[in-house]
Simulated scan of single mutants.
Amino acid sequence: MIKFFRKIRQNLLSEGKTTKYFKYAIGEIVLVVIGILIALQINNWNEERKEKESLNAIYNLLISDLESDLKNIPEILKYNNNKAPLLKHIIRGNLSRNDYSSNNRYYNLIGGSEDFSLKTKGYEQLRNFNGSDFSSNEVQIKINDFYEKYNTRLEALNELALDDLKSNYDYWKENFIWYPDYLIGKESSGFVNYSIENMDYKNRVANYFFLNCGLISEALEEIRIEANKILTLLREKTSD
């Protein structure tokens, strides 16, 4: 093609048709520029398509993360809700030896808790994606705000709950001879007497209730609502 255009130019020059030569040369340049612009536009379209596909893959991973989290939240809420009546029974000062005979859950009521953390694989990929825009893209702003808020909140709550459990075990280990029996799940009259008669136990139960059935359950309920909002936005984006 280049040889063809060169031959036309040479013929025009040899025939002395200088004006036509320059017009042709200009037209040839215009055609070349148009060709370059078309090629650039096609390349831009391809890059935009690839970027959209990559972003949709990240959005789908976020959807998977959130769906998994939303399946786990009800189990933890159920765990806390099932404990709540027993904890309140103790806090109100109604615990008796008969309670231990009728319900063995009282023996290890504050000996463990269920922690929860959001899955962040999709979010981390979005943060590292070159096409991310956390300043003007409405969906991405909401995603970022969600994870920044609740990751920080959950980290703090999980740490408080862990510190609370550690405080219980450390104190019992240093002060009570029934502690080894408690660890292996063996019934102990010493622990029963402590839990009924010692105000320290009621205080520890109250603290456990406040953290797990109060702060943590409230955070999980809030996360469930906000996560569903994010899911709706992501599903709309990936269906476009």
Rank of each mutant, 00 (worst) to 15 (best):
D145M: 07
V30R: 09
G185C: 13
S132L: 02
L95I: 09
F209Q: 10
E67Y: 00
V33G: 13
L165F: 12
W45D: 14
E174Q: 14
L13Y: 10
Y171Q: 09
A219P: 03
D164G: 03
S113N: 15
I225A: 04
S195L: 04
N103A: 09
Y150G: 04
S54Y: 03
K119T: 00
E114L: 12
S96Y: 03
P85G: 04
M1S: 11
S102W: 07
E75N: 05
N175T: 08
N11S: 15
N193K: 11
K229M: 04
Y201W: 14
A57D: 02
S135G: 10
I26R: 05
K202Q: 13
R105E: 15
K229G: 05
D145K: 06
V32E: 12
L160I: 10
K50D: 10
I73T: 01
I110L: 05
R105I: 02
K202F: 10
S189D: 12
L95N: 02
E159C: 10
S101R: 11
I76R: 01
L118R: 00
E174V: 03
A227Y: 00
N44G: 04
L233P: 00
A161I: 14
L37Y: 12
L109I: 10
I63F: 01
N158P: 09
Q10L: 11
Y59S: 02
A219C: 09
L40Q: 08
N94C: 06
S217M: 02
N60A: 07
G16M: 11
N46H: 08
T18H: 15
D163K: 14
R97W: 07
I73C: 04
L162G: 14
D170I: 11
Y107I: 03
G111N: 13
S102T: 11
F176P: 03
D200L: 13
E222N: 02
Y201N: 06
S117N: 12
N108K: 11
L160C: 05
G111I: 07
Y123R: 03
V33C: 08
N44Y: 06
A206Q: 10
N168H: 09
A39V: 09
S195R: 06
S14W: 09
K83H: 12
N158L: 05
Y182N: 12
L234T: 01
S54V: 02
E114A: 14
I110A: 05
D181M: 10
S113R: 14
L215C: 12
R97Q: 03
Y79F: 15
Y59W: 01
Y182G: 08
N193G: 07
N137H: 06
I73Y: 01
W178G: 07
E114M: 15
N137C: 12
I225W: 01
L220R: 01
T120K: 00
L157P: 05
I73S: 01
F5L: 07
R9S: 09
N151K: 12
I2N: 13
Y107R: 08
N193Y: 05
L31C: 08
M199D: 15
L160A: 15
G27S: 08
I42V: 12
E15H: 14
